[in-house]
Design a protein around this nucleic acid. Structure first.
Length: 255
DNA sequence: CGTTTTTGACCCGCGC
DNA sequence: GCGCGGGTCAAAAACG
């Protein structure tokens, strides 16, 4: 009996070790990705600043620039301002339907294949009230086809329907139900996905290869290497602290 | 038979 | 002015 328990503990420990390793790998990947994104964003900002400076220095009649142009430039400076609400929802990768259950009743009025994404974009209008101006666009994420990106446009002219609907992050028990209700991404997942989306939007897909080239060139960058080394060290230290804390908890619970 | 979805056509803004 | 791409319309088909 005691031997069987030992075996069970050993198996569980092995599983735990595997999960820890996987978690480490994913954490590392996320860290690297966010460092790359930060680098890319700051690089992009530098490029924009240089472009802006170039415009000012080359244009001696800056005062004569019409208001429209200045507003356009202002929009370029703050691309994230007044952006419609974007929601990222995880679904089954093989689920081809672009339906997100958010409590509202939507009526599909169009579908388009866009240039930057192989999967089609679906257009929905709120059908809960005849005069409701709320709309949403749903499209699969370019990088992860199991993620749906819903862009909400306009406010509902009626109250929040279906009180029973709760966008809970807890997965329902039973696999047959789990694919019916999509799970919302955690904040961290949503942020990293959003950063990638933003970078992709800013650079454009046709320049995707150039981004890859730039990302690979980052490895040669001493600043990037230092930041990466720091991130790796921090990850390992964090992991070690957590493990010590877990071990301590286990010891305490055993006593 | 009413409602919803599909899908090609059309419109409009933007860049060249 | 033209072409391109995103958004919307509307007729036909599908569905309950």
């Amino acid at each position: 009996m005691a031997i069987r328990m030992d075996e069970k503990v050993e198996t569980l420990e092995l599983e735990l070790q595997q999960v820890r390793e996987e978690n480490n790998t994913l954490r590392f990947m996320l860290e690297v990705m966010s460092i790359k994104c930060t680098k890319l964003e700051s690089h992009l900002q530098d490029i924009k600043k240089e472009e802006h400076r170039g415009i000012i220095s080359s244009n001696h009649q800056i005062e004569s620039i019409p208001n429209i142009d200045s507003s356009k430039r202002a929009r370029l400076e703050f691309p994230t301002a007044q952006k419609p609400l974007q929601v990222f929802v995880r679904t089954q990768p093989n689920d081809e339907s672009l339906i997100i259950k958010d409590g509202y009743q939507w009526r599909k009025y169009g579908q388009k294949v866009t240039k930057d994404n192989a999967s089609p974009r679906a257009y929905f209008r709120c059908s809960m009230a005849p005069s409701c101006p709320a709309k949403k666009k749903v499209q699969k994420c370019i990088h992860d086809r199991s993620i749906l990106v819903a862009t909400y446009d306009g406010e509902h002219s009626h109250g929040v329907p279906n009180e029973s609907f709760k966008p809970s992050s807890s997965t329902p028990k039973g696999s047959s139900i789990s694919n019916k209700l999509p799970t919302r991404l955690s904040d961290k997942e949503a942020i990293s996905t959003r950063i990638c989306e933003n970078v992709m939007q800013q650079f454009g897909v046709e320049r995707h290869i150039k981004i890859e080239e730039y990302a690979s060139s980052l490895i040669k960058d001493p600043d990037f290497t230092a930041a990466l080394a720091e991130a790796v060290a921090r990850t390992i230290t964090d992991q070690e602290h957590k493990r010590q804390g877990l071990d301590l908890n286990l010891n305490l619970s055993e006593e």
